[in-house]
Simulated scan of single mutants.
Amino acid sequence: MSKESKLVYSTDRGRIKETAPQPEAQGSADGIVRIWRESKGRGGKTVSVVKGLPLAGAELKSLAKTLKQACGTGGAVKDGQIEIQGDHRETLKAALEKAGYTVKLAGG
């Protein structure tokens, strides 16, 4: 039994079942795209992170390219998130809302 598994137990029946933790879903469960600014672990450089997009693979890369062009800067796709160099939250929000997404600015 691993330390990450969660044992379900009932006092009247004993052990019921053993469940493993479920991996986190790629997109957010509420359908809202969140944009926040992050600089930790980046040598003081700021990036705008877009999370919660219901896209994967080539579609996500294509959207990232469009957003980078809209901001006029570089960026990357990492772990299902789009990272855009610099603080471009307002520009990203406008571009994503134009594409039909529900967007919230999160964090600082």
Rank of each mutant, 00 (worst) to 15 (best):
L96F: 08
T91D: 09
T102D: 12
L60M: 13
K68Y: 08
K6C: 10
P21E: 12
E24G: 00
L55V: 01
A25V: 01
L67V: 10
S39F: 04
A20I: 05
G74F: 11
G107D: 05
Y9I: 14
R13N: 05
S62D: 14
I16W: 00
V33I: 09
L60D: 06
S2E: 09
Y9A: 12
L60V: 04
K61N: 15
I32E: 07
I32P: 00
M1E: 14
T19V: 15
E18C: 06
C71L: 09
I84D: 13
L67T: 01
Q22E: 12
V8C: 03
G100A: 07
D30F: 07
K17W: 00
G100H: 11
R15P: 00
S39D: 14
K65M: 04
P23Y: 01
E38Y: 12
A106Y: 07
G27Y: 02
S39V: 01
G72C: 08
P54T: 00
E97F: 07
T46L: 07
A76Q: 15
L92N: 02
R89C: 08
S2P: 14
K68H: 09
Y101S: 05
K61F: 11
E90T: 12
T102Q: 15
V8T: 12
G107H: 01
T66R: 15
D79N: 14
K93Y: 02
L7Q: 11
P21H: 10
T11F: 15
G72T: 13
T46R: 10
S62T: 13
V50I: 15
G41Q: 11
E90W: 05
D12P: 00
S2C: 03
R15D: 00
E59G: 03
G43N: 13
A106C: 02
Q81D: 04
A106I: 00
G75A: 02
V47A: 07
Q26F: 02
A20G: 08
V103T: 02
Y9P: 02
T19R: 09
T19P: 00
G31T: 08
L7K: 10
D79T: 02
G14I: 01
K93N: 01
D12Y: 07
G43K: 11
K65H: 08
T102Y: 01
R89L: 10
D12A: 12
S62C: 02
L53Q: 04
T73A: 11
A106N: 09
A95M: 04
E83R: 13
D79Q: 12
T102L: 12
G27W: 04
A94P: 01
Q26N: 01
I16M: 10
R13F: 08
M1H: 13
P23K: 13
Q69M: 06
V8Q: 08
L96H: 06
D12T: 14
G72S: 10
G75L: 06
V50W: 05
P54D: 07
D79W: 06
G72D: 13
G31F: 10
K3I: 12
D12G: 02
S62R: 15
I35H: 03
